[in-house]
């Protein structure tokens, strides 16, 4: 069982991450994206973007490159130390406030919001929330991740 007293409410160390254009193109290729605004700078500009926009789910990718240490689901020293073989993705949510583009630098702040046991402790649900702020300190996006830990 996860030690709630130790982990609940923990704020991860903030990370500042630059959005790499090449990775956005790779992400578009890997997901079979056909809309050129996601991989062609000229098409993005024609659509009114200053550069390639970060697609809706890529915020999850930003949040794990790199992962934080404090409060991380896997980190054995500073996080929850759950083995990768025992986790499943339970839920995922995003709220957007402004579009983010290649070249932007985002600061991520993650908090462990909830830890709930179900099925007599066979499953535990861990909720992390992350705020994404741009270099001007504006909130761009919020993300909620629920990870399922299998104890059985």
């Amino acid at each position: 069982m996860i030690d709630r007293d130790r982990h609940l409410g923990v704020d991860s160390e903030p990370r500042t991450i630059e959005i790499e254009r090449g990775f956005l193109k790779f992400f578009a290729k890997a997901t079979g994206e056909t809309d050129p605004i996601y991989f062609d700078e000229a098409a993005a500009r024609t659509a009114g973007h200053p550069d390639l926009p970060v697609p809706p789910t890529y915020f999850f990718s930003i949040s794990i490159n790199p992962r934080p240490r404090r409060g991380d689901i896997f980190d054995e020293d500073e996080g929850l130390g759950i083995p990768m073989s025992r986790v499943l993705h339970g839920e995922q949510g995003f709220t957007y406030h402004r579009t983010v583009h290649a070249g932007d630098r985002l600061t991520l702040r993650q908090t462990t919001r909830d830890i709930v046991a179900k099925k007599g402790g066979a499953l535990e649900f861990v909720t992390h929330e992350t705020l994404f702020e741009n270099a001007a300190g504006q909130l761009c996006a919020e993300m909620r991740v629920v990870t399922v830990v299998r104890n059985g």
Binding site: P55, G90, G93, Y96
Partner: peptide
């Protein structure tokens, strides 16, 4: 893939919030 369905219907600047259970 779900995001692609949504952004084909409306540009992503219109997407305010969304969530899904696996």
């Amino acid at each position: 893939y779900l995001a692609q369905m949504l952004t084909r219907w409306a540009p992503q600047e219109r997407l305010r919030r969304w969530s899904a259970r696996f």
